[in-house]
């Protein structure tokens, strides 16, 4: 959690000698400066850590626990053209090392977001990634236009992978042609960095990644939740209000790491990796698999300061291992 400015004071002053040469020799060995900055398809981030959409609200919810200025980016709750009410309860169920959710994209609509939530985020020196979803290509186009004209939006993450809504989610994301079509329409309507968020609920994630890359995506986010289900043996009924839900948390991490690895090797786009990242070690695993940046999701619920701990932990890992640029770790496991 040390800031660069504090590092100077970490070394007691009495270690310094009067000979300037001795001092120079000592300094780099004690605290090498490390570069945490990454570029995610045109989005410049001061470190590789953002929040996963839907787990961090619109930002202010976590402001008491997280210094929003320290995040690499803030990814806000999925936003649609019209307000959405979301699914009936229960919307969340715990599973071993994971959770199932079926929120159903509850959100106040894009106009409300721009008028009421975005101004708050402009107070921070942190890029804002807005996750968007729609029922139709026209919806995606219109949401894209409205957000592209709003001050303070740094990038769009296109949700073509929500498992919890009938339309506008996974239906698009699991069909290669439809997925590419959504990305093409969004691309036509924005110059903002465009991140396509992919569904893991497909046979071949590499194929779909290739299609959305051709359609104009600047980066890929993966993975969204895995479609899952829980049945209450007492009532003999599905536990969740929407029958099925999306599985997140450490339970899905190995699947996510595998998909990041496969996609990163096959598609020349930077990847925002996510899926069960709880700590810096998990985040580093994704980076080594080929992710240029990572998103922290379910971990926020367990440890509201998780993103801060992860940023500090990545920096520490780099120092401990003599890595001066985080970009040198991206895909390092391939070698």
């Amino acid at each position: 959690m040390t800031k660069p400015a504090d590092n100077l004071t970490d070394k007691p002053a009495d270690n310094l000698t009067d000979n300037p040469a001795d001092n120079l020799a000592v300094k780099p060995a004690v605290k090498p400066a490390v570069n945490l900055g990454v570029n995610l398809g045109g989005l410049q981030m001061k470190n590789p850590v953002t929040t996963a959409s839907g787990t961090f609200g619109f930002g202010p919810e976590y402001a008491p626990y997280v210094d929003l200025n320290r995040l690499g980016a803030i990814t806000v709750k999925g936003t649609t053209l019209e307000p959405r009410k979301g699914n009936p309860t229960p919307r969340i169920a715990e599973t071993p090392a994971g959770i199932l959710n079926c929120i159903g994209l509850q959100n106040p609509g894009v106009d409300h977001f721009i008028a009421e939530d975005l101004p708050y985020l402009r107070n921070y020196d942190t890029p804002v990634i807005v996750n968007i979803a729609g029922n139709s290509l026209d919806d995606y186009a219109e949401v894209t236009r409205r957000l592209s004209g709003a001050q303070g939006v740094s990038a769009l993450e296109v949700n073509i992978s929500c498992p919890n809504v009938k339309q506008g989610g996974m239906v698009f994301g699991t069909d290669c042609l439809m997925a590419a079509e959504v990305i093409r329409v969004v691309r036509e309507n924005t110059k903002l960095p465009l991140i396509a968020k992919l569904s893991p609920n497909v046979t071949d994630i590499v194929e779909i990644a290739g299609r959305v890359a051709e359609a104009g995506a600047d980066a890929l986010a993966l993975i969204n939740t895995l479609l899952g289900m829980k049945i209450d043996i007492r009532t003999r009924k599905p536990f969740l209000g929407n029958t099925m839900g999306g599985l997140s948390g450490p339970a899905i991490r190995p699947v996510a790491v595998r998909m990041v690895w496969q996609t990163a090797r096959a598609v020349r786009l930077p990847i925002l990796g996510m899926g069960g990242i709880m700590n810096a070690e998990d985040a580093i695993e994704f980076i080594l698999a080929g992710a240029a940046a990572v998103a922290v999701g379910t971990a926020n619920f367990v440890n509201p300061g998780a993103a801060m701990d992860i940023i500090a932990g990545i920096e520490q890992y780099m120092k401990d291992n003599g890595v001066t640029d985080v970009n040198d770790l991206v895909g390092a496991a391939w070698k």
Binding site: G54, T55, F56, G57, E61, Y62, P64, Y65, K77, E82, P83, R84, K85, G86, T89, P90, R91, I92, A93, I99, N101, I103, Q106, P108, G109, H112, N300, F301, P304
Partner: peptide, 26 residues
């Protein structure tokens, strides 16, 4: 059933009579 506890995840909701004129409804 609750997730984050801070209003971010929208898991623990209850139905409320919407205030007139601001029905965020589909």
């Amino acid at each position: 059933y609750m997730g984050c506890g801070v209003g971010a995840c929208l898991a623990c909701v209850c139905k409320s009579k919407a205030a007139a004129g601001r029905e965020p409804d589909d």
